[in-house]
């Protein structure tokens, strides 16, 4: 749908990916409905969507770890030319944590509570880089220094519960970058932090990723975050990409009513917010035949309820899934 894939440089290629969660009683719930996404080597792309839109499922599917009972129903994910979901457990484990890494949102719960943080970084180096334990420890200490953790020698032996949230987030970044990966997926990574700490951690993540030359898929609920450093922005709604554009183009001329609603939500102009937010959604479930966003859309017309729009190019590098995209200024 996004055209002929260019040869070579794509680090991640998601094409027509459908992931469903079968249920005994009801119909299968489709978390992802035909996602197309392409990330070039070294590129930073922001993926924005509200909770339940399929962001995390997409991250898991890229790693080849769709949480059960979910299944990939159609399409495929190629990381560096390989389909991770089709590989053996051991082969997948040799890619994850080394070439494809993850920055998680809630590190104090997800780091191992009984291992020191230095040890947890060192473990990644030890098992993925094939270095000696001493060397792995040295690398881990360097990483603690690189993520600006004060007094790294002492913090090496600290346990996760002894660190602040921002500090723990830095440890997770160190874990994600210790092996110089090709692609880093950041899944709502800073959502639990104070705004000031969040800015620091984001700056750090961005700098570190640039240094290592990794591509980044930056998944977030907060569209403002992506404005600072993502080169492209994709908006996901109900398991579909509804708009994708270069950053400049996206913030200058957003095309999808949902994107504008997200942007307007950050505006200080109440009139603008009101104009793009429906006071009440139409009753009943989203019509299965029409546009998934129709029930919340301020520009809805009859066609939207009956016919699902496809992702159509609006300009070069800018595609929108809408029958009536906003063409001019927002």
């Amino acid at each position: 749908m996004t055209g002929v894939p260019a040869a070579g440089s794509a680090i991640l290629e998601v094409s027509d990916l459908w992931v469903g969660f079968p249920s005994y009683r009801e119909q299968t719930l489709h978390a992802l409905k035909g996602i197309d996404l392409r990330i070039e080597a070294g590129e930073m792309i922001g993926l924005v969507g509200e909770s339940g839109s399929g962001k995390t499922t997409l991250a898991r599917a890229i790693m080849g770890l769709v949480p059960p009972p979910g299944v990939i129903e159609r399409g495929r994910v190629l990381f560096n030319g390989r389909d991770l979901s089709a590989q053996s457990d051991a082969a997948r484990r040799s890619v994850l944590g080394r070439e494809l890494t993850m920055v998680i949102p809630n590190p104090r719960a997800e780091l191992n509570p009984v291992l020191s943080v230095g040890r947890q970084i060192s473990n990644i180096a030890f098992y993925h880089l094939g270095v000696s334990r001493q060397e792995a420890d040295r690398i881990a200490l360097d990483m603690l220094r690189a993520v600006h953790i004060p007094d790294p020698e002492r913090r090496f032996n600290a346990y996760p519960h002894e660190l602040s949230g921002g500090m723990a987030q830095r440890v997770v970044i160190a874990i994600a970058l210790v092996c110089s990966p090709r692609l880093v997926i950041s899944d709502d990574a800073t959502s639990g932090l104070d705004v000031t700490v969040q800015a620091q951690v984001l700056d750090l993540l961005q700098t570190m990723v640039r240094e290592k030359g990794a591509a980044t898929l930056f998944i977030t609920r907060d569209i403002a975050i992506t404005a600072h450093f993502c080169s492209r922005i994709a908006i996901i709604y109900a398991g579909e990409v509804v708009e994708i554009a270069d950053r400049r183009r996206f913030f200058a001329r957003p095309g999808h009513p949902y994107s504008i609603m997200l942007l307007a939500a950050f505006s200080h102009n109440p009139a603008l917010r009101a104009r793009w937010t429906r006071a009440e959604e139409i009753a009943g479930a989203t019509p299965s035949t029409g546009c998934a966003f129709a029930s919340r859309c301020v520009r809805r017309q009859t066609r939207c309820l009956n016919e699902a729009p496809s992702l159509r190019p609006l300009a070069s590098g800018h595609a929108v899934r809408c029958h009536f995209p906003v063409e001019a200024q927002a």
């Binding site: 790693m63 770890l65 997948r92 484990r93 040799s94 890619v95 994850l96 944590g97 080394r98 890494t101 993850m102 998680i104 809630n106 719960a109 997800e110 780091l111 191992n112 509570p113 473990n123 990644i124 098992y127 993925h128 874990i175």
Partner: peptide, 11 residues
């Protein structure tokens, strides 16, 4: 959670 994270880290 920490086991799931360890799996994601490819240990």
């Amino acid at each position: 959670d920490f086991v799931r994270y360890a799996d994601m880290c490819g240990l």
